[in-house]
Structure formats: structure tokens, C-alpha cells
Design a protein around this nucleic acid. Structure first.
Ligand SMILES: [Zn+2]
Ligand SMILES: [Zn+2]
Ligand SMILES: [Zn+2]
Ligand SMILES: [Zn+2]
Lengths: 132, 132
DNA sequence: CTTATAAATGTTATATTATTACATACTGTT
DNA sequence: AACAGTATGTAATAATATAACATTTATAAG
């Protein structure tokens, strides 16, 4: 069972925007979209984003500097994220694959390092773009 | 057998710097370090970096906006990269694990998407930092 | 209810990362 | 020599992210 997080005002505004968006959103595009709601400065956006990432409601797509709502109904696995990214249309979706996440969560190598988190990004062409 | 790439002047300067560095380097730190060699502008650095990434001599650590020399003696798998990152000392090393790369290269899911590339970043504490 | 503490907000300025645009030069091939 | 492709030089600017400081709100303990 997941801990209930009561989002603050800014966090709620920003989460709702990202959640309704079709794809990943960039910080300054978020800022532009919430200015009518009184959020005026980049820092207000980044602070909310930081918190939302921390509690797993959104994830950062590192290769795109963009943020997407968790698609695993409030991710149990915010420390174990995987995405597929279309290099043509930039469509992104979160991969939810138990085998994959188990494999990676249990991965260890000779370095003696214990991994507590990972992020995986797959790139390719989505079905639509492939057939063009 | 890997294709031999004749690096241009700027590419060589920048690759040598990154290759000699102990850890990942950031673009503007690279710029600062090569100014004495006549490279004056960010764009000169970014162009060389782009090319070096393209041919697999270096990789970008996306979560850190930093660049590291390929540690697999000129990576055959520049489209299949995996790194371990210590969240305390920021030490980064490239993971070279045949099982892992095979598993990920062959990964497919129900999306119908054919993945041609991936990047995986593991986070945790390295041996040294764990014992502190 | 009061006090203490942590979390969130507001605001300004600034730092860091990356690209656009345009002119020129070098490299290899026909 | 003509051409195509790659690389370079330079200035300006765009896009992404954080520092510093003052204030306010939420939560919990006494
Ligand atoms: Zn998720
Ligand atoms: Zn697509
Ligand atoms: Zn490599
Ligand atoms: Zn460490």
C-alpha cells in the first residue's frame, strides 16, 4: 500500500498539468502554462517538480530534460524506472514489466556496489513512425 | 572489428582531455581546460562532443550532463550503454556485462516498438562510500 | 492554545547547459 | 578544377537550473 501524499497547492497545480498532458513536459513549458494560476518563477516549478519526483508521482526523462506523470498508478517503483522513447515523434511511455524490473533490481556486478536505484531509457521508432 | 575514426584536431584535443580525466567531465569544464589550446567557444566543444558520442569514443551520462570516455576499448556497443553512479562521491564507471547487454538488447514488449538503443544508469553507494 | 519544527512559498538574481545563425576553411573524390 | 562533405571560428542567444534570502503555512508536541 502506498503512502498517501497530500500535495501542496503548487504541487497539485503542476502535477495536474503534467498528468493531463499527452507527453512529457519541460519545466519552462510548465511554467508558461501555470502562470495564470499565480506561479510566476522557475524556482516554484522546480521545487514542485523535485518533490513530485521524490514521491514518485512523476519521473524525469533524463535524456529529454522533461517530466512525465507516473503511469503505474502511483509508482511503487519510482526508484526503478524504464521508458521507451520514440526518436521520431518523441512519444514516451513508461515500461511496466515485472521481469525487467526484477532483473534490474537484482542486478549486481563485481564492483561491490549495491544499487538502490536505476533509470533505463530505450530508444527506437514507435509503431506509427516505423510505418512511415 | 571497429572502424578507425580519424579524429579532427578539436575532437582529438577534447577526447584526450576526457580520456585522461578520472571521472566524467562537464562541457564548460572541458571548455575551460582547452582554452589554452585555442578552443574558445562552447559550440566548438559541443560539436566535438556530439561527434565523439556519435562514434562511441565517449558517452554522455544523462543524469549528470557529463561526458566520460568509453571504457570498453572503443565501445562496440555505443548504442547499449550502462553505468554505475555513486550518489555520494559521484564516481561513475561503465558497466560491461555481456548478460546484461544481451538481455537489454533483446528486450521487447507489447508496444510493438523495436528498440535500437538504450541507456541504463544505476545509482547507489560505491564500496568506499558505503563503509564511511 | 502556544511553542517549536519542518515544509512550502514568494521573489530577485544568477549560474549552467546548449543551440542558432552565418562565414570560412579543410579533406577527399571525380 | 570542381564538388561534396566535414570541420572550424565567432557572436549572440536560448533553454535549463540553482543560490540566497524573506516570509508563510502546516504539523505535532507540550
Ligand atoms: Zn512510475
Ligand atoms: Zn513515433
Ligand atoms: Zn562504451
Ligand atoms: Zn562513492
Amino acid at each position: 500500500m502506498q503512502k498517501e501524499h497530500n500535495l501542496s497547492k503548487n504541487q497539485k497545480i503542476i502535477f495536474d498539468l503534467i498528468d493531463k498532458s499527452r507527453g512529457p513536459m519541460k519545466a519552462y513549458s510548465i511554467l508558461f502554462n501555470v502562470q495564470k494560476k499565480g506561479i510566476k518563477a522557475p524556482l516554484q516549478v522546480y521545487r514542485a517538480l523535485d518533490k513530485l519526483v521524490e514521491i514518485g508521482k512523476i519521473h524525469k526523462i533524463e535524456s529529454r530534460n522533461a517530466f512525465i506523470a507516473c503511469q503505474n498508478s502511483s509508482c511503487q517503483i519510482s526508484k526503478a524506472t524504464a521508458f521507451s522513447i520514440c526518436e521520431s515523434c518523441e512519444n514516451v511511455s513508461e515500461i511496466s514489466n515485472l521481469k525487467l524490473s526484477k532483473y534490474l533490481s537484482n542486478f549486481s556486478d563485481s564492483s561491490g556496489m549495491k544499487y538502490s536505484k536505476y533509470n533505463l531509457e530505450f530508444f527506437g521508432l514507435c509503431k506509427k513512425c516505423k510505418s512511415k
